[in-house]
């Protein structure tokens, strides 16, 4: 069995998530080969063949060319699995490769169970076990779901990948840096976060007050930020900040994977949610089943006592 792993490279660096791909291949029990559009100076450590294309020539985001590069490696390796991270790079590229090969794709795999892939659905409230038909399967794995035990090891045999033709439909213009942070949540010992369940913008200060009473900072889920109820610098999650406070209180937050990715390392997690089945309950040390707007002000008052 062979897995072709598609590494990620951004702003001149190999991303660490590359080793999550290696960990997944290990769990599959597959031999590995890898494709990297990057640089020889920053090559990953693993055992197998590394198909290396130069990012200076093929770009960091150029889905049409990256697809062709992956397909060139697929033709040489004939892999059983073609594996991406379920990330802005992976979910953009994987379906293009799958469609070109007319092969099935299983998205955002969180576990391998009896040879089938386990994926989350319904906002993490349910799971599905998915089986792929056919000989080759494209897989994207959930970021953070598979991790390598120990340091990466090995030195791959490098083979250069080149394309004869470099016409592409999408032209990459450049990166825009994340907004400057006005609060550094990564240093906070206590974070009290507001989610969509707080209901309206006027209620956010009520959550902020509890944060203050506990000597902490206000955090927020993405919909709260998107709606303009809190500045982006307060957002916790994959597209916000990754935090690890001593105490994290999630108020009216359902517990989507992109939020959890930013706060699951907190030492102690309390969730306040009216829905006893909210997926946040899976990682919370304490789930308080209550209406946030009743519970939070009462808790702030109790802190002041």
């Amino acid at each position: 069995m062979k897995a072709l792993l598609i590494a990620e490279y951004r702003q001149g660096k190999l991303l660490d998530s590359t080793y999550e791909l290696v960990a997944f291949a290990k769990e599959l029990g597959a031999e590995t080969a890898m494709v990297l559009v990057g640089s020889a100076a920053d090559a990953p450590k693993f055992e197998g063949r590394l198909y290396l294309a130069d990012a200076a020539k093929y770009g960091e985001y150029n889905p049409d060319l990256h697809k062709k590069l992956v397909l060139a490696a697929v033709a040489k390796e004939n892999p059983d699995y073609i594996v991406f991270i379920h990330s802005s790079y992976g979910w953009d590229l994987a379906p293009r490769v799958a469609a070109s090969l007319r092969t099935g794709q299983v998205s955002e795999v969180v576990a391998l169970v009896d040879g089938k892939f386990e994926v989350t659905c319904c906002n993490a409230k349910m799971r599905r076990s998915v089986a792929a038909k056919g000989t080759t399967t494209v897989v994207t794995i959930q970021a953070g779901a598979f991790s390598l035990q120990g340091e990466p090891q090995g030195s791959p045999q490098v083979e250069a990948l080149e394309l004869a033709e470099t016409a592409a439909k999408v032209e990459f213009v450049g990166y825009e840096a994340a907004e400057q942070k006005e609060v550094d949540l990564t240093r906070a010992e206590v974070i009290v976060s507001a989610g969509r369940g707080v209901g309206k913008k006027e209620n956010v200060p009520v959550i902020a007050e509890l944060a203050r009473a506990l000597g902490g900072e206000l955090g927020a889920s993405r919909p709260v930020v998107d709606a303009g109820w809190a500045p982006h610098s307060h957002q916790v999650g994959t597209t916000g900040q990754t935090v690890s406070p001593k105490l994290y209180i999630a108020c009216g937050i359902s517990g989507a994977i992109q939020h959890l990715a930013g706060m699951k390392k907190a030492d102690f997690i309390v969730a306040i949610n009216k829905d006893k089945d909210a997926p946040i309950g899976e990682i919370a040390d304490v789930l308080v089943v209550a209406d946030v707007m009743q519970f939070v002000p009462a808790m702030t008052a109790r802190c002041a006592r």
Binding site: A131, P279, R302
Partner: peptide, 28 residues
């Protein structure tokens, strides 16, 4: 079809976190 759902199921509850229900005062 190229992929098929074998089954759907709720995720296994890990953690064993504490669930607090009831009156707000007692909960606090």
């Amino acid at each position: 079809e190229l992929t098929a759902t074998a089954r759907m199921y709720p995720p296994a509850r890990k953690g064993g976190g504490i669930v607090i229900e009831g009156d707000v005062k007692d909960q606090i």
